[in-house]
Design a protein around this nucleic acid. Sequence first.
DNA 1: TCACTATAGGACACTGAGTGCCACCCGAGA
DNA 2: TCTCGGGTGGCACTCAGTGTCCTATAGTGA
Lengths: 229, 229
Amino acid sequence: MPARRDIRRSLTAAALDLFLAQGFDETTVDQIAEAAGVARRTFFRHFKVKEDAIFPDHDAMLREIVAHLETASPLVPPLTAVTEAALMVVGTYAADPETSVKRYEVTRRVPSLREHEIAATSRYQRAFAAFLNERDGAGEPRRLRHEVIAAAAVTTHNHVLRAWLRGGGTGDVRARLSEALSGILEGLEPWLDDRDRPRDSEDDDVLVVVTRRGTPLWKIAQEIEAARG
Amino acid sequence: MPARRDIRRSLTAAALDLFLAQGFDETTVDQIAEAAGVARRTFFRHFKVKEDAIFPDHDAMLREIVAHLETASPLVPPLTAVTEAALMVVGTYAADPETSVKRYEVTRRVPSLREHEIAATSRYQRAFAAFLNERDGAGEPRRLRHEVIAAAAVTTHNHVLRAWLRGGGTGDVRARLSEALSGILEGLEPWLDDRDRPRDSEDDDVLVVVTRRGTPLWKIAQEIEAARG
DNA sequence: TCACTATAGGACACTGAGTGCCACCCGAGA
DNA sequence: TCTCGGGTGGCACTCAGTGTCCTATAGTGA
């Protein structure tokens, strides 16, 4: 009997191989469990549904992303934090290109797996939008723009990732995504900022901060926040 | 026994009411079929899966959208065609606000229905992107931007639609969506056009068209296309 | 080394979604 | 009247997913 921690791993491996060899619908959970050397019931202790077997870590990844965004320093621009989050996601694919490519092959062919993955990416999109709303204001003209920005980030992520997967998983995805995202998001940033900002309001007041040269950045930021009440 | 065409209708009505009253998972297909006065087997002749029962027309709508885009005149700007398509979609919700709101209530609460709907909207997104690629060039720097534009359109559609549904389905969604979309897409249009256009190429050549005053627009367009080979 | 407990896996039964198959009904046409 | 075709009913079957109870093992304290 395999060690506790490896069961999940061998289940995903068995599932992926079986799905590739004979198709998703043609593979029963019994077969996956048998190939992994465990009981059927054990499969459903590790995965809520059959589709989960080849997306083993989407939930954990989403939690990581949310944590990363929530703990992001207020000094880093929101779009930078989103970029970092997207790079974290693509990094998990890059960590095991071979498996990622196999998974892509299966997912491409099975509608229910595609829907499952789309649902997963839409959760990232929600997280991004929520973060932008929190960091950058959630007034009505801006909420929509934040959702659009989040959609743009996720779309770009998916676009670059799929191209990389189609190419067999060779090359540096993170670099490619980083470049593509800066191209998209930097282009969108003025669009996000220039419009619908309240004008003629106290936001336009001048704020003067005097500080010693050596003061750390976070301290200055603190002071600015304090000055604005 | 009800007339053929009404069976589908009474099935969706029964399903929606039962889902609202006792929950999605707690409602069996047997109950839906019984409430609609047909056999269980008949339910699955009308709907592929249980989730389909409250999205009766997404497939037909998608076909309509694709047809609309494919037959769009080359004279109308691509983003206008996309806007029109999005308005068609929201129009089907506006046609029966009461049902739309009920459906929203159920969908909001049931994960599998949410995923189902997300998958449906992602199909619209694919259709939009494919249309833009076809109409506006499918070279690599542009493909990504087209996907982003498509995502922006769908995101805007969903944003406006959900706000309307949360508000109980009162007011003119089509007008609101039209306004929101022009705000978003017109803002994005220069972003789409200004970059990654091949410069110093023959695209910048001057083309002079001389024609009679009364010549119909489509004929001039034809001539321009011909002149560019 | 020996209980003791918590945690994870196994065995089994059960519900319900989804499918295949065949029989039936009913309207259209020869 | 016969037959043909499309939609329906009935039935049986597979398999996903769950609840329940039992067992094995790892870790803990004495």
